[in-house]
Amino acid sequence: MKKLVSAVIAFALVIIGITTGFVIEHGNSHDKTGEYAVELNEIERLIEQGDTDTAIIRTKQMREAMRTENADNINISIIIMGSICLIFLLSVGGYCYFTVIRPFGRLTGFAERVAQGDLETPLEYERTNLFGKFTWAFDSMRKEILRARTCEQEAIENNKTVIASLSHDIKTPISTVRAYAEAMEMGMSRAEDREKYVSVIIRKCDEVAQLTEDILAHSLSDLDKLRMHPEVFELNGFLEDLLADLNTQNDIIFEKPSYTIYMNADRNRLSQAVENLITNARKYAGTNIDVHINCDENNAYITFHDSGEGVPDEDMPFIFGKFYRGKNTNGEKGSGLGLFIVKYIVCQSGGDVRARNNNGFEVTLTLPVYEE
């Protein structure tokens, strides 16, 4: 509002200056002072000569001429001032329209669109007009509402991802339990192996129970990520026992290194990652699975390699994405979460995952070693 008042005062001063110039110029252009002086001298000379009648007539004529000229000057001044005032009012009205009315109209339309749920259309604003700061604040509010809605949608998607990933992880121990149970039912196991099978089945049931608790905890506390519970353990022995439990089809080839490697990670989550990789290799490759461990001063490298067809090059950049399934699934059922879960667990453990085609498909887990 201060800008508007300052603009009106400045414009009024300009108009006054222009009006004064017009009046002065008009007065100068019609100045007949010299003519009236000559006329007065003629009247005085007639009076001196005794011709008073003529002097009176000439005096009346001069007065009438002066009155007519003054009236003309007043009329012209009124016309000029009226025109200038009209121009001034039109200018003020135009200024008010472009600086107040039109921006307020745009702001009203924008508020109506926001009320109808349209948060994508931005509000164009200029900080130099009267509503500049207000429109900027209004558009910032729109962005905050849009950001809040986006975060809410992301939270919903995260919830779906967690539920889907936990449900996916339940399938792996269930399939192991089923395989051992079928072997025992068909009498394919020896008497001395049955105790081992029962122990594996019990352990896998415990894993299912733990995953079920994760689903319950997620639904109760609205978790957006799986919880990790790291502990120190020896990697080679852990992996040997885990792969022995998973080797129901005698298709896993693993040679335990002679040295020891200690990790500080979540054993259950790392078991899920390994089981997902084994399950994927069986489902999509159907070949033997070679598992190797290498180590340097900082990291341990666990490599899983099958002899299948591998992953198409165009799918390789996306295989760790949520719900992504490649073109070579060959009708196999799946949720597209296996490798996503593997990468998440390994990254949460401070490591990384790499995949490549190398006469088959090869996945390498990089995990930091534990140093006391």
Score class of each variant (00 low, 15 high):
Glu112Ala: 15
Asp251Gln: 04
Ala115His: 04
Phe110Gln: 05
Met1Trp: 07
Gln61Glu: 13
Phe304Pro: 02
Leu216Lys: 14
Ser349Glu: 06
Leu226Pro: 00
Glu314Leu: 04
Pro122Leu: 09
Asn298Ser: 15
Pro368Cys: 08
Phe131Gly: 02
Leu337Thr: 01
Asn359Asp: 10
Ala115Cys: 01
Lys2Asp: 06
Met81Val: 03
Ile345Val: 10
Phe131Glu: 02
Val291Lys: 02
Val14Thr: 12
Ala164Lys: 05
Tyr370Thr: 07
Arg203Asn: 12
Val114Phe: 07
Glu42Val: 07
His305Val: 06
Asp352Asn: 15
Ser219Pro: 01
Gln49His: 09
Cys347Glu: 13
Asn288Thr: 02
Glu362Tyr: 06
Arg58Ala: 05
Ile56Gln: 10
Ala65Gly: 08
Ile163Ala: 13
Met186Ile: 09
Glu362Leu: 10
Arg227Met: 03
Ile18Gly: 05
Arg142Asn: 06
Glu25Ala: 15
Arg194Cys: 12
Gly237Val: 04
Glu195Arg: 13
Gly105Pro: 02
Gln116Ile: 03
Lys143Arg: 15
Ala137Glu: 14
Leu270Thr: 03
Gly334Val: 00
Met1Thr: 08
Ile145Met: 15
Tyr301His: 05
Val8Pro: 00
Thr248Arg: 09
Asn158Tyr: 14
Asp313Gly: 03
Gly310Ile: 01
Gly109Tyr: 12
Glu182Asn: 13
Phe131Gln: 04
Ser271Pro: 02
